[in-house]
Design a protein around this nucleic acid. Structure first.
Lengths: 312, 312
DNA sequence: TAGAAAACATAGATAAAACTGATAATTGCC
DNA sequence: GGCAATTATCAGTTTTATCTATGTTTTCTA
């Protein structure tokens, strides 16, 4: 059994074709076929059902491939160990970011970061918290940027900054007359929410917890998948929605007029870097952290008198 | 990078000598030296300090080897996947057993098991619960036999049987006059205990919890490392100790006279097979389980009216 | 249903590699 | 300095991963 053989088998499984798998491995089709066959003979197992078109992985093949992937991933990590130890700023960094942060936070530092460390291959995925947590546990991500605390046993959280919640309301909303809003000012029947799965949604609900307990939860309005959609709905219809501070910063000045802060203590969310307990790439992650902290408004760094809202 | 190269490197690290490592890998010393050198060149890393005698692994080498071991262990598991899937009764089964079970439980089924499945390489370690839990999490054991519940997130418990606690007392002890004992009959100043780390100790303390709260815990007597020692102390000095039911069964008839059961509900400990969430060798483990259940007294299988004592 | 196309297997040749045994170089120790 | 032990180097052999070319089987289409 060789590493190359396992890579070939994984490629066949992925591409469902020997020829395409061969191409993806930069070898000819016979080479790959022979090696796959050899491995099958050594293990005394049929990995692929070649009678099916396209090629089907057998049940036992699937299990073996799953195990092989785990093993090869561990061996790949040897390179990370070396890069980290040598302080060489290179390698792959797989980053997961939640949708309510990614469009507002990433543009602030990404360009500078990839220019500064051109040898680093930054792979970014936008995922909801639940999926980031799963992928961190499955070692499919090196790092997550999400809202904490999570209380996950095997994950380590490093708080980055504290971002206030603000209220964005339609132009003709009576609350625009106030300078700051209080929780009681808000009528939850006018609130537009993100759909299930977003931590921001849970926090918005928690902020209005008192009212929600009283009223039926069924009265919540149409639920959207992105904050940008919510903003547009508020602009074109009636009502309000919550926004995180960073989302507000990129808005046109004219629209900012319809944003109101909360009275002290403002509700705030804690944004953290999250890694698995067995993480590598410490140096790389620290550089990313420094880069982020250098590019966000200074006042976000400290929580101050604001009040942390949890979501789990 | 090849699997063979990594095995060579691991062997050098273990044997602290290229020549001995080569022998253990069944190749000549130049072969091994060349492959190690090639790997060092490919990774651009010095793994061993050859100027030191014996050869020293470098700091970075140690980290790489640790990671390589993890990866190779995962790849080795491919064989387990196959054995399990094919229902082939072979392979290695690494079992950890706590000291208060191992001398009494293992003799009951071990001989039959290894005769029945000669292709299975059963490796047994006697360890306290804490170490078994760690080794299960680190994938250094396939299976543990210990006292549950543990409330460990990543471990799965399968109860095997329920074993009563009994009291073993010196020949001249007044309690020998009773047929059964009650918790209140026991004077904890006369109790001999296992030392820290044994779950059996914690359970013994929990059984006498009421008295212990009242008295100072400092008054506990000399603490021994094995139940056999405790038995001997009780025989030769004054006092009593707790024993698990199986430990009693192997005693001479004459000594059994100084054993007393508790009044209903008897205190009982739950003995379970414990595996990691990501366990393999399901079939093998099931066979071992059946073998154990076939060889223990039938009345242990059900808890009945007895009262479970926890220890964590 | 014949014929073309696609997909995988097989065969023979080749170049890279891994291995061996002998020998040289290095290091530690007396 | 010289001996013993250990690792590196060298030359020759064997193994094997790979390639190109070809064969076989299946699938799609006219």
């Amino acid at each position: 059994m060789t590493i190359v053989q396992l890579e070939y088998v994984i490629a066949v499984d992925r591409h469902r074709s020997f020829a395409r798998a061969a191409k993806s491995c930069f070898v000819t089709q016979p080479t790959l076929s022979m090696q796959v066959k050899k491995l099958e003979e050594e293990l005394n197992v049929i990995l692929f059902d070649r009678s099916k078109k396209p090629v089907m992985t057998t049940d036992i093949g699937r299990k073996i491939i799953a195990q092989a992937k785990i093993g090869l991933r561990s061996l790949k990590k040897i390179e990370d160990v070396i890069n980290d130890e040598k302080d060489e700023i290179k390698g792959e960094l797989r980053l997961g970011v939640i949708p309510t942060l990614s469009p507002y936070l990433l543009p602030l530092f990404i360009t500078d970061f990839i220019q500064k460390y051109p040898q680093v291959n930054l792979v970014i995925e936008e995922l909801i918290s639940e999926h980031i947590i799963k992928k961190l546990n499955d070692d499919e991500l090196d790092l997550g940027i999400l809202v904490t605390p999570l209380n996950e046993k095997n994950l380590i959280e490093t708080p980055l900054f504290y971002e206030s919640f603000v209220v964005y309301m339609s132009t003709n909303h009576p609350l625009t007359k106030k300078v700051k809003v209080a929780f009681d000012d808000l009528n939850i029947n006018e609130m537009w929410l993100l759909k299930e799965g977003h931590c921001f949604r849970n926090q918005a609900i928690n902020i209005c917890a008192d009212q929600l307990l009283a009223e039926s939860k069924n009265q919540l309005k149409f639920e959207s998948g992105s904050l940008e959609t919510l903003k547009r709905i508020v602009e074109n219809q009636y009502g309000f929605t919550f926004l995180p501070e960073l989302a507000m910063m990129t808005m046109e000045e004219i629209k900012k007029k319809y944003i109101r802060q909360f009275k002290t203590p403002e509700p705030v969310r804690e944004v953290s870097l999250v890694v698995h307990r067995s993480f590598l790439k410490e140096r790389l992650i620290n550089l990313l952290k420094d880069e982020i902290l250098d590019h966000i408004p200074v006042h976000l760094r400290e929580k101050g008198e604001r009040k942390l809202v949890e979501w789990v």
